[in-house]
Design a protein around this nucleic acid. Sequence first.
DNA 1: TCTGTAATTTGACGGAGATCAAAGTGCTTG
DNA 2: CAAGCACTTTGATCTCCGTCAAATTACAGA
Lengths: 231, 231
Amino acid sequence: MRIGEKPEIARLPLFREMDEAQREEVFSASYLQVFPPQLTLFEAGQQADFLHVLVDGLVELYVGGAGRDTTMRIVEPVSSYILAAVVTDMPYLMSARTLASSRILLVPAVHLREAMNRDEGLMEATMREMALGYRDLVRALTDLKSRQSAERLGNHLLEYSTRLGGEWEFELKGEKRVLASLLGMTPENLSRAFGALKQHGVSVAGAKVRIEDKEALAAFSRPDPVPPDRF
Amino acid sequence: MRIGEKPEIARLPLFREMDEAQREEVFSASYLQVFPPQLTLFEAGQQADFLHVLVDGLVELYVGGAGRDTTMRIVEPVSSYILAAVVTDMPYLMSARTLASSRILLVPAVHLREAMNRDEGLMEATMREMALGYRDLVRALTDLKSRQSAERLGNHLLEYSTRLGGEWEFELKGEKRVLASLLGMTPENLSRAFGALKQHGVSVAGAKVRIEDKEALAAFSRPDPVPPDRF
DNA sequence: TCTGTAATTTGACGGAGATCAAAGTGCTTG
DNA sequence: CAAGCACTTTGATCTCCGTCAAATTACAGA
């Protein structure tokens, strides 16, 4: 893959501070590949041979807990995923599948780890990325433990909205069943949660969501006092 | 603090690969302090001025979610905590309190971050530590989302047991109410969960737990197919 | 040792959310 | 444009777990 092809990748926090030559070398060993929707990219337990960078499309990370799968993250472009498995050289903890036709840059784990040892900036960026990911999960865990379902949905909508730069009207990516699993509830209950939020400044039509009263929604959802690290 | 005082600290994965001189410098800027039980060490939202290393005692990390606190981790010696806030130079996401009289090494965040930029080994160890912590949280999150309370307790006991090197009889650290909060349930329900596990090879007397039938407990608790990264 | 306080346990009850079933809606495909 | 299928929504019921209350046990201080 040539670097000029996707300057957006090079602008990711993970690769931004990299030495130019190193980046060129890592990227030239990587390949960009297109996958159809609903394809399993890898499964939990497999050795982590590649860091993935989603360039275009939509990817779901999930864990297959006995009975039912539980969604851990919905990856939107452009972002990398499964970094922790790659840096520790351990088996994936999560499985991944495409939710839409997706273009993914596959970066060989070996090359990335080698580049890290040569490139101070890359290692620091990786460390920071891991730390931010850790903090995201701390939030997700407390969210699940201390809020009920409609509040979780409310907070999710608020955060998604501000991540979009403050758009109070937007479309949900992917199916609602996946969102339900991400938020730790059933599709039926997600539907009811949306219903409950109608009383608190949210209107929904299909995948289109409008936050009509941000204050009311925030009052109901009780967002964290410490704001998220990144949007 | 003199390094000779606690070789155990220097043997932590985080500090093990450090350059000797760097370690000496960082440790000499740190101080070992004794805290009484039930003392708040820091609160979520505060700037992360110190990395903590618990040398002796017991510490609880928790998040104060509106109504009730929820325990995120019970820290046993010798281990460090709150690394992610320190490396990102962001506010603590969790609060910390001592559960018992504790000796804690306070490492100034500034010194640690500076040492990281000079010491390749330290940075790599930090990166690895963060990655392992991330994976721990992925497990905790799926655990909470896909298992019910008695199963969570069963898995916790199994993991704790193997972390102790396979001791099938051990004492629980701290109060049961804290364990309950860590596992995402009420004290009442923890009690009932212990009751339920009696049918699956676990006997309890006060804080003393005995796993009498590991196979039966594992069959009931449905542990992860991918074993934990570290014990 | 005794006593008071806190932690744990046990029981009864209620509620949030899961499950099951069925109807409704939207999307894809011929 | 119509048919078929999957996703979403709605309703009814059940289950797990939280809440409230009370009894019991453990523990610290006098």
